[in-house]
Write a protein that binds this DNA or RNA. Sequence first.
DNA 1: GCCTGTTAGTTGTAGCGTCAAGCATTCGAC
DNA 2: GTCGAATGCTTGACGCTACAACTAACAGGC
Lengths: 168, 168
Amino acid sequence: MDDSRWLTPQQLRAWIRLVSVVELLPGSLDAQLQRDAQLTHFEYFALARLSEAPGRTLRMTALSTATNSTLARLSHVIARLEKRGYVGRTPCPRDRRATNVALTESGWQKVIETAPGHVAMVRESVIDALDAADVADLDRIMGRVLARLDPSNRLRNWSDDGPTKAGE
Amino acid sequence: MDDSRWLTPQQLRAWIRLVSVVELLPGSLDAQLQRDAQLTHFEYFALARLSEAPGRTLRMTALSTATNSTLARLSHVIARLEKRGYVGRTPCPRDRRATNVALTESGWQKVIETAPGHVAMVRESVIDALDAADVADLDRIMGRVLARLDPSNRLRNWSDDGPTKAGE
DNA sequence: GCCTGTTAGTTGTAGCGTCAAGCATTCGAC
DNA sequence: GTCGAATGCTTGACGCTACAACTAACAGGC
């Protein structure tokens, strides 16, 4: 085992802090959304992505890509959201294997109602702790990490110039 | 709703990238550890913290602090690790409410065996994507975010000069 | 047309985390 | 000392995710 393979103290501390954030952030986001909208962060994230899509509709595969999830996970989540009336599933006529998921009017309203509180939480827990330089650094660093975590570059949507729409 | 409460495009992109990392990193770490050591990242993290403690022993509460977890979660996890022989629980004679968790010899060996592969994964997926300036920036930024996410500062151990031991 | 392989999506199961409830012990006020 | 509150930890039930197995449909070679 090559000594250079160990982490320097600086690297170790940055790593532990990153792991701590990775561990704590989801709980923080879930707690606010659960309390205020009875949604998990993932459910909200999926609804938000749908709300930005043309016609507020996406294929399952496209939505799973946009949310970094597997099709299996998404299928369960969409089934729950469908039961609650926020989305509707329709077979795609072009390709009868495929399923289109569309935001319902009720789902659209849910996103509208939920977004401000969620954005407030995002600011409170992360963004407002950072100045402009921090945000630029964070953007750069997470971009580099994503290139490693997501080698197939499924997130290319966010890799260059992302949308400016504030659905998040 | 004040317009200033929305995110700028720059903030939004940094945020989405951070969320993506938060979503993808745990799966990546878990996959490697599961494959090579039949451990979740959290289990490994707990064993690693124990391995650094004096006498390789900690109280449940202290370990839950060191791992950013609730006592309930830790209790379940320690029960699993105890069944597998990696840790042992003994009532604390000083305070009979408390439980001391100690790494067994088998658990110590497990950490020794598992650490190199895990560190390699950490480098591969995060650290090696960053230069020295990135690491410093990441450290600073995650420190600031942690101050928000962890207002009670339970993680003070990592807030100033962290340990230099490379158990991670 | 048919056969093989790939793609799209669903479903069941098992495992982990959260939450609420509970028990035992200790602390603090009086 | 004693009573109420706080602390330390455990447990059981429930919900969500990952994994694997499965069905259905398209695509290409022949």
